[in-house]
Design a protein around this nucleic acid. Structure first.
Length: 738
RNA sequence: GUCCGGUUAGCUCAGCUGGUAGAGCGCUACAUUGACAUUGUAGAGGCCACAAGUUCAAGUCUUGUAUCGGACACCA
């Protein structure tokens, strides 16, 4: 091309698209415009004051974390929806935030302190440790926020929320107090999942099962004891209070109701033979040694048989508290010791190798020790009176349990799962739901607002006065996360934001936190507001590497998204995760694809150059006389717009992106531009003018429909278009075409 | 054990309410110093896992089988 002969088009188009030259500036420009905030859009007439609101809450990443591909995927999905709806003139709000990930963050800081100062948390004391964790959290906060900006997320930073800031604190305290007063939060002694390594309770959802080799020991407690039992944990048998058999089991029927006293491994033990339907006569010997204090199932059996839950024989450090030869031993050592004793006494009948699923803590990897502990719980089955309800099928003033509330919110269609299979998974999970243990024995987090004085308990945010001691435990992180859709909007204050933007429009989490988070948001929002937290849940899959493996630190297969941005651009990275996979399925990340979409960005750049070059200095005042072919091109363009819009509306973002992409490259560039060359260089001025007009329309519309997916390159082109072609200075808030 | 998915071109995946298969990447050949160093055109390549059923018609609906994967539960 003869460069010096170029008509008046911005020089920038003369070289290939260079994303790093534009992206940061464009983000800055968007941010400075104020249009991430819907209030400003209303003020400047971009959205009508009564326009339909569209709200999304960013699933808050860990404040101390780094952006990974999973975030990029999740956030790109949301940003595309948000930008689409913003361009349609809705009052569009996307709220950013970060989470504290209390257990992980505290563990990390404790480790640092241990390493640098050789001090434990107890050396430092509660206040000092919490202070240090806060400092650490705040220091690292900027990292993830900047990374999110780097990939172009159109979040309203003026509404930024942090899980442990003052407003969220207010919400958490109020939520706890209200639920306590409704009788849904209670303190109870129950078997919990105790993580001896992390020194805290964890919820069922934080457990991972690992298959390990174990030994099943079959033995008698004592020579005179008539029943043989089998166990993988002989060391707990000093805590047995019963032996359970199936009520119909002919072998043992005669012993039911009898009590036996004997010395087991230096410890006096008294067991009663009880009948329980849960016992499988086929497994082992068909008889279970019941250790109520160290097994959930046994605890329940003891409950049903009305037997004492004590004694506790293992402590919080997974050491034996029993008297005699086991005293002070770790459980693993105690196990060997008991087996040795059984052999000495000739009580051991056999030892078998079996596979066993061992419960371990997700975060620390510690083996879970079930222990009875005084904990705080949320009852999911207890009925309460719901004061106010806007949820279909639930009347204000009705009696209902949280479980029912969670079921009905989805059953009646107030919360829609566009993918049917996740709806099923949700219901399946609700069926298996138990009371939720919400107390955690760490220091970083929201301290439970319960106060003790002698035998009295008061639940309130501030100290009732002299002599009252506050509960040591903090709340499960998921408690505050569950409030997120409305705590971010100012609740418990009845703010205008809350009124306008809640329920939110949709939530887009990964399937791994459906039970942990999604269902609990439904629970909390239903209880506190009588609303659902969101109208739709778009569950997405995991981002995996090319081989289909999960990204993980240990595999060292992690791809740094920022590296991809640097190499190819944020737009290309976003397209590569959005396109090609139906939402809900796992994605295989392939760098080749990112490269491919960067080519596309450049293609778009060149299309723009071509159109601008051929349209330079045209005066648009005349009405063009379109040929039949011109009209056909416009028809096809409009059809593409409506297809893309439809797909996005149906949550099929990947199809919307693909249709826009396909149109621009293989219709607009390959067909329309090619055939226009002759017309543009031809002698028919009227036909030329008409085609110039058509090309202009095609370009503007293409930029618009691609903007939700590739915000940067489309905006970069837009910023260099002549003013008279634009309906808004900024593409981000330009009108979505029809 | 209960539940939920996947199985379509060499690879990664689309294919919505049934009308004899699509994209990207890769591959082959040709073209290209006129928007495009990141281009175009053409092409090869598929018993849509298998079987039975419904239908005028089945990747598409039903049932079953195989196989891979996931979630939940969990046994002493």
């Amino acid at each position: 091309m003869a460069n010096q002969a170029q008509p008046n088009i911005p020089e920038i188009f003369l070289s290939p698209y260079n994303p790093s030259e534009h992206e940061d500036n464009l983000y800055q420009m968007w941010n400075d415009s104020g249009y991430f905030n819907p209030d400003n859009c209303v003020k400047d007439g971009i959205a009508k004051p009564d326009a339909e609101p569209f709200t999304v809450m960013l699933p808050p990443p860990n404040v101390t974390g780094n952006l990974h591909l999973g975030h990029v995927y999740e956030d790109s999905l949301q940003d595309a929806f948000v930008r689409f709806h913003r361009m349609q003139g809705k009052r569009t709000l996307w709220v950013p935030g970060t989470d504290s990930a209390a257990i992980a963050t505290q563990a990390r800081v404790e480790k640092n302190i241990q390493k640098e100062d050789k001090k434990s948390r107890h050396d430092l004391g509660r206040e000092e440790l919490v202070k240090r964790i806060e400092v650490f959290a705040k220091e690292s906060e900027g990292t993830i926020l900047n990374q999110i900006k780097k990939v172009g997320m159109s979040l309203d930073w003026s509404r930024y929320a942090y899980a442990l800031d003052d407003e969220r604190y207010e919400a958490v305290m109020t939520a706890f107090t209200n639920m306590y007063e409704a009788g849904l939060i209670y303190r109870g002694n129950r078997i919990v999942n105790w993580d001896p390594k992390g020194q805290t309770t964890i919820s069922d959802d934080e457990i991972v099962y690992e298959e390990r080799d174990a030994k099943l020991y079959t033995f008698k407690y004592n020579k005179d004891f008539p029943i043989t039992i089998a166990t993988t944990r002989p060391e707990t048998k000093v805590g047995d209070t019963a032996v359970a058999v199936h009520p119909e089991d002919e072998r043992y029927k005669q012993y039911i109701g009898q009590t036996f006293d004997f010395i087991f491994c230096d410890v006096p033990v008294s067991v009663k033979v009880v009948a329980d339907k849960e016992v499988d006569p086929e497994f082992g010997t068909g008889a279970i040694g019941v250790t109520p204090a160290h097994s959930k199932i046994d605890w329940d059996i003891a409950d049903r048989a009305n037997i004492d839950h004590r004694p506790q024989v293992i402590n919080e450090y997974a050491k034996m508290v029993a008297e005699g030869r086991l005293s002070g031993l770790k459980v693993t050592a105690a196990r060997e010791e008991v087996v040795k004793w059984l052999e000495e006494e000739n009580l051991l009948e056999k030892t078998e190798d079996i596979k066993q699923n061992v419960s371990t803590a997700e975060r620390t990897g510690g083996i879970i020790e079930p222990l009875p502990k005084l904990q705080w719980w949320i009852s999911v089955d207890k009925e309460f009176i719901i004061k106010h309800s806007e949820i279909t099928g639930i009347e204000s003033g009705e009696k209902i349990s949280l479980k029912e509330l969670m079921r009905k919110s989805v059953e009646n269609g107030d919360v829609v799962f566009p993918q049917d299979r996740f709806r099923k998974i949700y219901f399946h999970w609700i069926e298996n739901l138990h009371d939720w243990c919400i107390s955690r024995q760490i220091w970083f987090g929201h301290r439970i607002p319960a106060w003790y004085k002698e035998d009295e308990i008061k639940v309130q945010t501030n100290s009732p006065g002299e002599g009252w001691e506050q509960e040591e435990d903090v709340l499960d992180t998921w408690f505050s996360s569950a409030l997120w859709t409305f705590s971010t909007l100012g609740w418990p204050e009845q703010t205008k934001d809350l009124e306008t933007f809640h329920p939110t429009s949709f939530m887009s989490p990964g399937y791994e936190i459906l039970p942990l988070w999604v269902s609990r948001m439904i629970l909390m929002s239903g209880f506190h507001l009588g609303q659902v937290p969101f109208k739709a849940v778009m569950i997405h899959g995991l981002v995996r590497d090319k081989q289909g493996q999960k990204f993980s630190k240990s595999l060292k297969n992690g791809t740094d998204p920022l590296e991809m941005v640097k190499l190819y651009s944020a737009d290309a990275l976003r397209m590569s995760v959005l396109m090609g996979t139906a939402i809900g399925n796992d994605i295989r990340f392939d760098e080749q694809q990112v490269r491919g979409y960067q080519k596309f960005a450049n293609k778009l750049w060149n299309i723009s150059r071509f159109v601008l070059t051929s349209n330079a200095d045209v005066n648009w005042e005349q009405v063009p006389e379109l040929s039949e072919r011109d009209e056909e091109i416009i028809r096809k363009l409009k059809q593409t717009v409506s297809e893309v819009s439809d797909e996005i509306d149906k949550f099929s973002l990947y199809l919307g992106a693909e249709k826009a992409y396909h149109y621009v490259w293989h219709e607009l560039a390959d067909v329309v531009l090619e055939e226009s060359k002759d017309i543009l260089t031809g002698a028919d001025e009227s036909a030329k003018y008409a085609r110039q007009y058509v090309l202009k329309e095609c370009l503007i519309t293409s930029l618009k429909i691609l903007h939700p997916f590739m915000p940067f390159v489309t905006e970069a082109v837009w910023q260099n278009l002549p003013k008279e072609l634009k309906d808004q200075d900024i593409l981000m808030v330009a009108k979505w075409p029809k």
